[in-house]
């Protein structure tokens, strides 16, 4: 009995330590953001890493999400005789929910895990120490460019995802299900508001910050050895995914 409390106590304490470290890390990032020098080249490199190299994944998942949405939406709407609303259903689901969330999950799997591993390895092979010793702040040199790249690329990737998804849905609705092209787009334009797009963008922005924050943090605090890095990577992906879904719900509840 006593040992259960002890066990719980230690875990709760560890949780607090973890949360505290996470937030200190974030404040340090913001602090570094305010003070030059800015690592423009590293930022470009990370944008390429997050953005260009995730595009193929995003295009594929976007296209298929749109197609599946059209197919399933058609099935459901058909029961009410409201097939005409397929366009708005596809577009709204993509723009408000699936675009930001799926895109964030895909990029976490592709790029987030990689930056955790990279930073983790830099830590255990003393590359971060080497930077520190050369009076180059590794937070500025390695972490901040990743955070900025996340915040910049996520909304753009999400927008690409949405558009590709809408055209994927268009392919299925118009060419496979026989909806008229005019109906698909006209209804969509009618029902989608700037508000919806803004919500999607807010989500994507915050996911960008969350994912890059969690992934860099995990790498920066990786344990030693290959095992430490692999554990950090797994944790980063799992935590990012859970936080994405949780935050998506919370934002949805706030913004609605």
């Amino acid at each position: 009995m006593k040992s259960i409390f002890r066990y719980l106590g230690i875990n709760v304490l560890n949780l607090f330590v973890f949360l505290g470290k996470m937030f200190l890390f974030l404040t340090e990032i913001f602090y570094c953001l305010l003070i030059p020098p800015f690592r423009f080249k590293n930022l470009l490199r990370q944008i390429r890493f997050f953005g260009n190299k995730s595009m193929i994944v995003v295009v594929f998942t976007g296209a298929f999400s749109g197609m599946v949405l059209a197919l399933q939406g058609f099935y459901a709407l058909n029961k009410f005789g409201a097939e005409a609303l397929l366009g708005p259903v596809v577009a709204l689901s993509l723009i408000r929910e699936l675009g930001p969330v799926l895109c964030a999950l895909m990029v976490t799997g592709r790029a987030g895990s990689a930056i955790t591993a990279e930073i983790g390895i830099m830590k255990i092979t003393e590359q971060l120490d080497a930077l520190t010793v050369m009076a180059v702040n590794p937070m500025k040199y390695v972490v901040v460019p990743n955070i900025l790249a996340g915040v910049i690329t996520f909304p753009l990737l999400t927008a690409i995802f949405d558009v590709i998804g809408i055209y994927g849905g268009y392919l299925v609705s118009v060419h496979a299900l026989g909806l008229s092209e005019g109906t698909y787009f006209a209804q969509m334009e009618l029902y989608v508001d700037m508000e919806d797009i803004r919500i999607g963008l807010y989500k994507a922005l915050s996911f960008g910050l969350l994912v890059s924050w969690i992934c860099t943090f995990m790498g920066y605090n990786a344990g030693y050895g290959a095992r430490g890095v692999s554990k950090a990577t797994t944790n980063a992906v799992v935590l990012s995914s859970v936080v994405i879904l949780l935050w998506d719900y919370m934002l949805g509840a706030f913004l609605l």
């Binding site: 092979t125 003393e126 080497a130 010793v133 050369m134 009076a135």
Partner: peptide
């Protein structure tokens, strides 16, 4: 630190 150079045991080269 900027007056100090260090050769780390493992090299610590930027890979």
């Amino acid at each position: 630190r900027s007056q100090i150079g260090v050769v780390f045991q493992g090299g610590a080269l930027f890979d």
